[in-house]
């Protein structure tokens, strides 16, 4: 009976579509922790990935080293010219740090928004389907990594910890398109302006800094860093530099294209930083009327 088989196949298809929708709905929900089968599978896979990714990195590193050798001379010349500048800068930083510490002592104010404690980690995997930009790192909750910690490289902020298991953790990059992936940022200059990093322009490969006040005067190459006001990230982590400022779609605020300081593609070593200051409760940040709803 071909009719019967056709119906059976149709039923299987319909049932699997229902299961698909249910599963997607389940995994899109805001979850504080993954279920234990997921954690177990991810940790096991992470273990295998560590075994394979180390030799692969060494192999790739060799070619990179050869490539680096080619332009060593040019780089050396440039770096030498920057060296004098650096010594001066270092002295300045030192005196400023000391002064800052003294002033803090006078004020009796110990902690600041920019305090953080770094944890070193190595990238062992990356989401191959590039819709959601996720990295897997080799440190987990046993090393003190928790959800919502920020992740930086030596050149700037790259994202935050999405969730952590016993031995591995997942990092969501700033470039991934997710409504909850927002960073409160500030543009440093003679006057500081606040905005929010919301989204990533694929074609220009730049972050979008939105909600800057309309009267703000921002120029190219100004530094954008985290403000620490969002309650998740510590302040003063470099995000990137301003490339172009345009009016927003409604013309009420301005939007800036920010060239990320960190490279989102070639990441090997990262630092996970824990915000030293306590995180405010969500109920403190939204108004009381909203809470009542």
């Amino acid at each position: 009976m071909p009719q019967f088989f056709l119906n059976k196949r149709l039923i299987i298809l319909l049932v699997s579509i229902i299961i698909l929708v249910a599963l997607i709905g389940f995994s899109l929900k805001e979850r504080d922790e993954l279920t234990w089968p997921e954690q177990f599978m991810k940790d096991t896979a992470g273990w295998v990935q560590t075994l394979v990714s180390r030799p692969a990195h060494y192999f790739a590193g060799f070619f990179e080293n050869v490539k680096d050798l080619q332009n060593t001379y040019e780089e050396n010349k440039q770096l030498k010219s920057r060296l004098n500048e650096l010594a001066q800068l270092k002295a300045e930083v030192q005196s400023l740090t000391e002064e800052n510490k003294e002033l803090r002592d006078i004020l009796d104010k110990q902690d600041s928004l920019s305090d953080y404690e770094p944890i070193q980690a190595t990238v062992i995997g990356r989401n191959p389907d590039r819709w959601n930009e996720l990295l897997i790192i080799n440190k987990g909750s046993t090393n003190g990594i928790e959800k919502d910690m920020s992740v930086i490289t030596s050149t700037g902020l790259i994202g935050k910890v999405k969730n952590s298991r016993q031995f591995t953790a997942t990092v969501q990059l700033l470039s991934s398109n997710d409504a909850t992936n927002r960073v409160s940022a500030e543009v440093v200059g003679t006057e500081t302006y606040y905005g929010q990093i919301e989204g990533f322009d694929r074609e220009k490969e730049m972050l979008l800094l939105k909600r800057i006040p309309y009267e703000a005067k921002i120029e190219k190459d100004q530094i954008v860093q985290t403000s620490g006001m969002g309650g998740v990230f510590p302040s003063q982590l470099v995000i990137g530099t301003v490339e172009e400022v345009v009016p927003d779609e409604y013309g009420l605020t301005q939007m800036a294209y920010v060239k990320p300081g960190a490279n989102f593609y070639d990441i090997e070593h990262v630092m996970v930083v824990k915000r030293g200051m306590i995180q405010p409760e969500l109920s403190d940040m939204i108004g009381e009327e909203e809470e009542k709803k």
Binding site: M41, A45, N132
Partner: peptide
């Protein structure tokens, strides 16, 4: 299923 759990974190898409 493995791909969804380990990499994409949205269970269902590759499984299907």
């Amino acid at each position: 299923l493995l791909f969804d759990v380990v990499y994409t974190e949205i269970i269902g898409i590759y499984l299907f």
